[in-house]
């Protein structure tokens, strides 16, 4: 996947979009939302949407998008190619939240928590689709927080659209699975191709899964902990693992 502007500047958020298929502007459509990279302490979090006419739901099933969690990275990439190839009736959009933005949002004086950040990002993508003339009638959302509250919130924001929020929605609804694939492929791509803006020479990419409880990730954090500056912008400073390590091994800083 080509990440274009995000490769140039990974300190800020980035929106990537496909073309809007003509049929999506004339026929009733369904849209799925999922995210990738919520838990890791490294790299961006990506929100993805995928949409297609309701009439084409079966065609989508034929693409065998399935449960993206069981797929390998390569398999996912291939599926994304297929989705992207079906431009006549499938559209997608991604919002890449840079780790730097995650850090500064969550650490700012008027705190912006991860849930709010997530909801606002998802809402933004749905609005984008509407603004581009997609005839949305159904929206399916995967959730981490309480489903009914989120469903109410979205229903109120998007009257006239049937909103369905379910945990594990990516295994229930193919259109969510499709969104999940887009998000995951984008995240994998962003992490693999990460350009360290800091002047650190050759950076060791042996950081394991990127999850805070992964010993490889912890070791990497320790290796790249600068006592004054903390970490490169690849790291989410707002994660407690990152903060704790910095507080104990780095220089104390008072704000």
């Amino acid at each position: 996947m080509e990440l274009g502007p995000f490769e140039t500047d990974n300190a800020v958020n980035c929106r990537l979009t496909s073309q809007i298929p003509d049929v999506c502007q004339t026929e009733d459509c369904c849209l799925g939302i999922d995210e990738a990279g919520r838990g890791p302490v490294l790299g961006p979090m990506v929100y993805g949407i995928c949409f297609c006419p309701i009439s084409k739901k079966d065609k989508l099933k034929e693409l065998k998008v399935a449960d993206s969690k069981t797929l390998t990275e390569t398999e996912r990439e291939n599926l994304f190619e297929k989705l992207d190839g079906a431009k006549s009736y499938i559209g997608w959009a991604l919002q890449i939240l840079s780790p730097n933005t995650i850090s500064t949002s969550m650490l700012q004086r008027t705190k912006y928590n991860l849930n709010s950040l997530s909801h606002d990002t998802a809402i933004g993508l749905v609005q984008y689709a509407l603004d581009r003339g997609v005839q949305l009638k159904e929206v399916f959302v995967d959730t981490v927080g309480p489903a009914d509250r989120y469903e109410d919130k979205l229903s109120k924001l998007f009257p006239g659209i049937k909103v369905t929020v379910r945990p594990k929605a990516d295994s229930l609804f193919p259109i969510v699975s499709a969104a999940s694939i887009c998000a995951k492929v984008a995240r994998d791509c962003a992490v693999k191709g990460w350009n360290f803006a800091e002047d650190l020479g050759e950076v060791d990419t042996n950081y394991g899964s990127g999850y805070p409880n992964d010993p490889k990730t912890k070791a990497w954090l320790l290796k790249y902990l600068d006592p004054v500056f903390g970490y490169p912008q690849f790291v989410r400073f707002s994660w407690s693992t990152a903060q704790t390590l910095m507080d104990s091994k780095g220089v104390t800083v008072h704000w």
Binding site: A11, N100, S103, T104, L107, Q108, A197, E198, D199, L200, D226, V228, F229, G230, P232, Q233, R236, F237, S238, A242, M246, V253, W255
Partner: peptide, 23 residues
């Protein structure tokens, strides 16, 4: 220079950078 200068962005009337995750 490796951390602050390398990541500072110059905008019209100001510069922006993050230090320890704060803008």
């Amino acid at each position: 220079s490796q951390y602050l200068t390398a990541t500072t962005k110059d905008c019209k009337h100001e510069k922006t950078v993050s230090f320890r995750g704060r803008g």
